[in-house]
Design a binder for these strands. Structure first.
Lengths: 339, 339
DNA sequence: ATGAAAGCGCTAACAT
DNA sequence: ATGTTAGCGCTTTCAT
């Protein structure tokens, strides 16, 4: 490292301006109670020396970092490929842009979880946002309540279930999607459910099941479920199985758009017309949903608002405010051609 | 914030273990020169108190942060959508996984560049990686040599051109792509160039031009260039213009795969067969390149190795080693169906 | 409105 | 091998 030419300190600015360090600190941090001419003097000294405050020292003294981490699992390619992710980040960034907080995507090394934990607990951040945590991922339990945290989606992990989180009402959204299908006169309504180790997978299945059961359909209908893992291929495979089991299927609620796209491919391959023979509803309203043929009817969750809400809740939490454990972002059914 | 129940300090561990703070520090940092029984005592105390070192205090005292930042422009959605980005991050993460460094994607607020600058200069990080910087983006010039930095791609900005960077040899790669086209007997070889405010855009055009000129083709050929902005649509539009100008076109070198996909769409719409009528070569070897029809012949740049190299260069730089300013990652021409 | 002084929690000579 | 002693650069009471 280049020793020698060292960066100017607050003390040097104080000397240059002929005031105390405390005064420089006040000016730098925008305190009101400093005489105008002194402010000018200090600012001139700051400019002359090209002074930049040492944030680490400030953090140590003030016990604040002015940093918020958004924790991302190292299997980064998966997350970056998820069309839901980018807008969430943008939402967070937008909210933080108006504050003094800096946003920090922390890539969590999965092979060395203690590295991440130490970083989070070591005073580097004031709070953390957690997205796409799976049921197996217990890395955050240890953090206890040591650090303000907000989860994206209902935490599934024992010991974390009561933590603050932002979520969409997956159960109710699914219910409403099925209600729409019923309103269309459909009676054999199947579902392709997602991974059951994620809230989105679990809850959307529950909503479908509740709505189908409440419709007075027979026992058989409630068993019309095949599972996928949220990828397009898994959706295609699930649709194959579904069609083999229930050729008379007339509607399909799919737990996300990717799988819905796969399912529609298979439906077409089997000569089923959408929506005439089989009505299809997806979930997420991914960017490509409108470009499928027919355009996909789907449950839209506003990703950017989701990110904004997460950031707002976390900031309030850090400020010591009393925030409800659960913040629900409303979804809406986007009617397109497929149902 | 929850005042009161404060986190244990090194001093408390020292008291608990009945040794000095220095000894605790040694044990925590894995120093060799501590007696085995003392090590055990200290570790027991650490476990009992659930002690986690304060990294901020450590940073202040040691003048190291053990953090490396990867700076990402706030227009995050663009970057996350770029298929080149995820593997680069994975490469960086892979290298850092073997070290004590933590990786930190810093979302650079474009409206408040000083926030980013202060974070970087404030002691929070030991070094920074910069990807996808545009020519207008002068935010890093101010950093001068205050912080070890490695750029992905040749820095275009005056004052930054001599900084350390990792790059592919865009000029030579383009030259070789054109050579391949010439080897196929093509004589009317056009190019769709990318944004001219990015090295990839500039250099790939230069390579094409040099190769075409060297081939002894007439003046006219060297003018067979249309510009896009690296998006698929811009590639399609450029191809339209190209075809209008030069119906006799028999080959196309396109500065990236996205634009190549757009161009192939247009070529097909105009009844041109690829590669029979027009041979097409792209650049990047994006994931979708092999799934186009015909599969796209393209210049592959190994994104993960790119990331690995960036991380390795930065680590060496931080360690004070003498590293060449420029590290070149070799590319290869992937022959598929389009040329 | 300004300054003096006491830390924040840790590391790194230097001593022993 | 272990302890002692200064800081790292800043914030923050508490005086004045």
């Amino acid at each position: 490292m280049n020793r020698g030419a060292r960066t100017p300190t607050l003390e040097m600015v104080a000397a240059e301006a002929g005031v105390s360090r405390a005064t420089v600190s006040r000016v730098v941090n925008g305190s009101t109670s400093v005489a105008p001419d002194i402010i000018a003097q200090v600012q001139a000294a700051v400019a002359r020396l090209d002074y930049v405050p040492n944030r680490v020292a400030r953090s140590l003294a003030s016990r604040r970092a002015d940093v918020i981490a958004l924790i991302v699992p190292e299997s980064a390619s998966t997350v970056f490929a998820d069309p839901f992710f980018a807008p969430v980040v943008r939402g967070v960034a937008r909210v933080l842009g108006d504050t003094d907080y800096t946003l920090n995507l922390l890539i969590a090394s999965e092979s060395r979880p203690e590295k991440t934990r130490r970083y989070l607990q070591g005073g580097n951040v004031d709070g953390a946002l957690v997205v796409s945590h799976h049921a197996e991922d217990h890395s955050y339990v240890g953090l206890g309540s040591a650090l303000p945290m907000v989860f994206g989606g209902r935490p599934l992990i024992p010991g974390l279930t009561d933590r603050h989180h932002v979520d969409v009402d997956n159960v109710d959204s699914a219910r409403r999607a099925v209600a729409h299908l019923l309103g269309l006169g459909r009676t054999r309504i199947g579902t392709i459910a997602g991974r059951q180790d994620m809230p989105a997978g679990l809850d959307r299945l529950v909503g479908w099941r509740e709505a189908v059961a409440a419709s007075g359909a027979g026992r058989a209908s409630v068993d019309l479920v095949e599972f996928g893992d949220f990828t397009q291929d898994s959706g295609a495979e699930a649709a194959e199985r579904m069609l083999a089991r229930e050729p008379g299927l007339d509607a399909l609620f799919v737990a996300n758009d990717q799988m819905a796209a796969g399912a529609m491919r298979v439906l077409a391959a089997h000569g089923r017309r959408v929506p005439d023979d089989v009505a299809v509803i997806g979930f997420d309203d991914d960017t490509f949903a409108a470009t499928l043929s027919p355009p996909l009817t789907t449950v839209r969750q506003p990703a950017m608002e989701f990110g904004e809400a997460m950031a707002e809740v976390l900031i309030a939490l850090i400020a010591g405010e009393d925030v409800p454990r659960r913040t629900v972002i409303p979804t809406s059914l986007v009617r397109r051609g497929s149902a």
